[in-house]
């Protein structure tokens, strides 16, 4: 991977460089929380943020998105072109980028490409920033604490400088035009190793590292634990909205008032919604909270792994903060961690 170093004082110049051609989205402080939002000045960016409340997936996969226009009387699709704004997501953590890469597997790859997602992904540059884990971060357990691809630039904080991994021509051109970049010195390289070491050592040791989680998801599929965990679910879908990798959606037709014209749009949906697995005629394949929460965790910690060789959880910890009923993957890891440890029957 190609890398250079740049002085931290040059960061505003880099942001302004991107602003000339792109809308820039970055972490900003809102009250006590941090969120990804559009910025019009480098000063607004809070790059030293712990974690945003929700992920940046909305820029690749909006909560509501028009798919096509139609004429309901004639039952025909009408001409429709949706333009996608070129954007930079500036200051994404490794887990966020890892989340995009996992969304790519689900939405952009496979037999069918989702043209809406693919167009946004292609029109979006990603600039990553190194981070320090919070108490609820467990990305290292989900293979999402570092990324090797899926970004254009990645800035590693090494004190007064950034070590910059340069991954695309488009972003490198802007970097070179706006900033003084230099070859790394031996001190820079040592500072980088120190930073990665410090990052590695900072994870919360109370979140258990459990081996063979996908198999455990099958082995303990019928454990009463799921009744207890799923029984608490409020079906509010907060987990799925903040999640960087939840991509389930609903499709609905919206008619314009007093007209036969309308829009077919898709909206975020969640497998924890009671009607999610309902079929015509009234049969519900996942009628209880137990079924739904277990399915959500199963897809995150087993199903996606079986198909794509990585978890559909990045360990970002957002659902830990968002869930009012204390349902999150850490609870599942704790359950596996405790299983057989105390009641060794």
């Amino acid at each position: 991977m190609l890398y250079r170093v740049m002085d931290k004082s040059q960061l505003p110049a880099l942001v302004r460089g991107f602003m000339e051609s792109y809308e820039v989205v970055a972490p900003v402080k809102r009250g006590e929380r941090y969120v990804f939002d559009t910025v019009d000045s480098p000063d607004q960016i809070a790059l030293d943020y712990p974690q945003t409340a929700s992920s940046a997936k909305k820029y690749l996969f909006p909560p509501v998105e028009a798919m096509m226009r139609f004429d309901a009387r004639a039952n025909l699709v009408q001409d429709f072109v949706q333009e996608v704004k070129p954007r930079v997501i500036f200051g994404a953590h490794a887990c966020d980028i890892s989340g995009f890469n996992r969304l790519d597997l689900a939405l952009a790859q496979g037999k069918y490409t989702d043209p809406y997602y693919a167009a946004r992904r292609a029109a979006t540059l990603v600039v990553g920033i190194s981070c320090m884990p919070t108490d609820t971060c467990f990305c290292q357990l989900m293979g999402a604490d570092e990324v090797q691809f899926g970004y254009d630039l990645f800035l590693y904080d090494i004190g007064d400088k950034y070590l910059v991994s340069m991954s695309s021509v488009e972003a490198t051109n802007i970097l070179e035009a706006c900033c003084e970049i230099a070859e790394a010195t031996d001190d820079d390289r040592r500072a980088f190793r120190l930073a990665t070491r410090r990052h590695q050592a900072a994870f919360n040791p109370d979140i258990p590292h459990v081996e063979d989680v996908p198999m455990l998801m099958d082995v303990f599929h019928f454990d009463p634990f799921w009744d207890e965990l799923g029984g608490r679910c409020l079906s509010c879908s907060a987990c799925a909205s903040v999640c960087p990798t939840c991509y389930c959606f609903d499709i609905r037709d919206v008619l314009q008032e007093d007209s036969d014209a309308g829009v077919r749009e898709r909206t975020w949906d969640a497998c924890t919604s009671p009607d999610f697995a309902l079929v015509a005629g009234g049969h519900n394949f996942r009628p209880t909270g137990r079924d739904r929460v277990r399915h959500r965790m199963y897809h995150k910690l087993n199903g996606f792994m079986v198909n794509h060789d990585r978890m559909l959880c990045t360990g970002c910890g957002r659902c830990v903060a968002a869930c009012k009923a204390d349902i999150d993957p850490i609870q599942v890891l704790r359950f596996f961690d405790e299983k057989g440890a105390r009641d060794d029957r």
Binding site: E20, T38, F80, V84, A123
Partner: peptide
């Protein structure tokens, strides 16, 4: 928010 968007926008089409 910037209006000076220079890079060419991509588009999704559902043409009749």
């Amino acid at each position: 928010m910037t209006d000076s968007v220079g890079a060419s926008p991509l588009a999704v089409r559902a043409l009749t």
